[in-house]
Design a protein around this nucleic acid. Sequence first.
DNA 1: CATGAATGAGCCTTCATTCAT
DNA 2: TATGAATGAAGGCTCATTCAT
Lengths: 242, 242, 242, 242
Amino acid sequence: MTRKQREMRQREELILDVAARMLLDSGYVGLSMDRVAEATEYSKGTIYQHFTCKEDLIAGVLLRTIEVRGRLFARGATYRGRSRERLTGIGVADSLFYQLYPDHARIEQLTKVESIWDKASSERREKCHSGDSSCMAVVQGVIRDGIASGDLELQEGVTPDGLMFGLWSMSVGSRMIIVHGALMDKFGDTDPQLIIDQAYQHYLDGYGWRPLSTEWDYRQTISRIRDEVFGEDILRAEVQYA
Amino acid sequence: MTRKQREMRQREELILDVAARMLLDSGYVGLSMDRVAEATEYSKGTIYQHFTCKEDLIAGVLLRTIEVRGRLFARGATYRGRSRERLTGIGVADSLFYQLYPDHARIEQLTKVESIWDKASSERREKCHSGDSSCMAVVQGVIRDGIASGDLELQEGVTPDGLMFGLWSMSVGSRMIIVHGALMDKFGDTDPQLIIDQAYQHYLDGYGWRPLSTEWDYRQTISRIRDEVFGEDILRAEVQYA
Amino acid sequence: MTRKQREMRQREELILDVAARMLLDSGYVGLSMDRVAEATEYSKGTIYQHFTCKEDLIAGVLLRTIEVRGRLFARGATYRGRSRERLTGIGVADSLFYQLYPDHARIEQLTKVESIWDKASSERREKCHSGDSSCMAVVQGVIRDGIASGDLELQEGVTPDGLMFGLWSMSVGSRMIIVHGALMDKFGDTDPQLIIDQAYQHYLDGYGWRPLSTEWDYRQTISRIRDEVFGEDILRAEVQYA
Amino acid sequence: MTRKQREMRQREELILDVAARMLLDSGYVGLSMDRVAEATEYSKGTIYQHFTCKEDLIAGVLLRTIEVRGRLFARGATYRGRSRERLTGIGVADSLFYQLYPDHARIEQLTKVESIWDKASSERREKCHSGDSSCMAVVQGVIRDGIASGDLELQEGVTPDGLMFGLWSMSVGSRMIIVHGALMDKFGDTDPQLIIDQAYQHYLDGYGWRPLSTEWDYRQTISRIRDEVFGEDILRAEVQYA
DNA sequence: CATGAATGAGCCTTCATTCAT
DNA sequence: TATGAATGAAGGCTCATTCAT
């Protein structure tokens, strides 16, 4: 019984691999159940035994992506340091998500535009939603810590959620722009990641989250987090993609 | 001859109207040349005389959207005031773009995901690109003015383009999040636009662009810009959508 | 061993119940082995152990229907009275078959159109045929009695089978028309059963089967048969469908 | 323009021919758009330009059948003679419909069971309905004539529509039985048509429609109608099927 | 025996594009 | 120049049946 289940699991992974590749190469429209079946060398019927419909398959692909992001975020917040450093940890997680797993990042984008949720199985729908939620919970937790520790004092009318919204926007938006590519020439030829890091820090400075970037070398913090917290992930990913 | 051209022009607008509507209602897949022909009451051959293929038609739709955004941006920068106020003018333009023309905003997103550019006619491709460019040029101009006037002093290693990149990211990202909707419940029930405005101001504060939001009532500036600069647009759009 | 057979029998009944329901709700095409297996909570393999193929399953469903009709006919002919009254008994049985068991009636029709017999197992095929035969034998018996008793004198060239053929045609045809429904508005809004009863009586009058409907109150006969012969069946069916 | 339309018309006939053949050979389920396309050597797209869906195609097939029956009925009622003779004319039309056009007859049956009307185009749906209606109107007309002429006196509680319902039932039912075949051995080996003719005449005798079959040689009337009214049709059909 | 995963032909339908008129 | 019939590949999905476990 266990072996059968293991085989099922393995096959599901294979199907998801193929589907993800196809989604990346040809977009939502280009992903076709026929071609997935052909590429996996399984029959169409078998594909449909794992996923109730095309949308459900895509939700399955997205779920893995969400899990990857979730794992990175959770780990990013484990960095020991002041609250803003821990937020920076999540920032590093975010940028590593794009750098180490560009495919996952692209999948996140592609699936955010076409609405899949009406047809996907409710099981997968809920898993995805809860994955997203826990990512945000991590951020919210760190912001709360910042307030609790006194490093962050929000002015009247300003909420933790508002702060998070800006961070989230910059994350989503910046990657959208980079991937879309068309306009990147407008931003000179500085390393985009550097620009993004700066933008984040200025944004947090604007909220007065201590220590300000003028008082603290966050580039060093970032570098340390990459090494200490994500060293393994970076290594593993580099091996995988090489 | 001139009359013929006028007729051509008119017909093209009609086709684009119908195509845009279809794109909005049914997405990229739902837009079909057959149905466009049927809805416009022109023959399919005629449609193909104006647009070389489906992708070119979509590019045509997008071009109009880009023009709308361009017009708003240009006008937003005309506000007379200090440099950061003028940037705020563009911010207002940006938010009005989403508020007054949600259809255009949605088109911008939809077309960013499916890759159109490989098949669209090079003519339209270039027009779109140059439209985008002039939007950014407006922003870049205002930032340069800020530096020239002394209101904005960039620290070493920080470029005007970096500043713009953050703004652009927040614009694109925030709308993405709002449209996607799935996660909006995470951000409490404050008016999203207010949150976005705050995020922008904190971001600019972080760069030290004077006057800071703690020294100046930008909410009043925004309100004045809406009235003085965009009063007409708001009125016109409200009439149109009513 | 006997218990096992009993279980088999029970399971077969369950499968047939489910299949019948599905056939009625969704037609021949809508009946699928997958869904039968799912609804019965048995595996597909098990279903195939009872029925060699889809067609055989349908034949099984039909067989039960034929048995119901057979039981009613047999009972209808038990009415004590003159020969034409006994035929009327069968007529009542026929109409009750449609009234009390509309599902069975519909199954009879559905299965008559799609050709099942090529693929069904010969065992079930023969059982169905013999069931049909015994229905007709009942009618033939009553006609013979009519002749023997002197109530019915057939003119030269007219056979008992010819008489039966007309009766059978009217039975099949009238239900076909009623079920099809499309043309029922053409027949005014009298109760269809009344019309059918009249048609039967006029038909038998045409053969001169005594006592003619002008000499005898067959409506009263019908009413008495319903009470005396079929009282129980009516009660039971009403309970079942309520 | 006229030539194109002619070609369209011709193609439509071809498609309908093929579809009818397929329906007859393989039933409702066996008729597939793919195979129709293949057999006609037109592309699937072309088939769909003529018929909006499978059901609409079947409705198209049925429409031709209804027209054939309608033509025969109309002609049958033209026989000059007493009212019951004219009804006999329609009876002959009915039997010729089955004899000369067994395919049409079978189509009528097949399509009566599966419900097509939900999906067929409303145009074809209405045409079919009106075709059916005019057939019945012809019968109703003759019955009214019978009453007007005094040949037919209906007893109280008996309506012309009731009379027609019986005729219609026998027509539909008898053909159902014959086509189904399974039980024909039960009816001895007399010519089925003769049996049907007798059944009709006895039925009308039962209503007392004058002249009764005991007073008038309807077999001769039938024979005369076949020659005088339908001679040509019989000839043509025989040629066609030979 | 019972199971249910795997199969793959087949279903109905849509659509971008072409080209003869 | 405008038309719209024709194309045929491709799409998502279903299902009767088999067979290794």
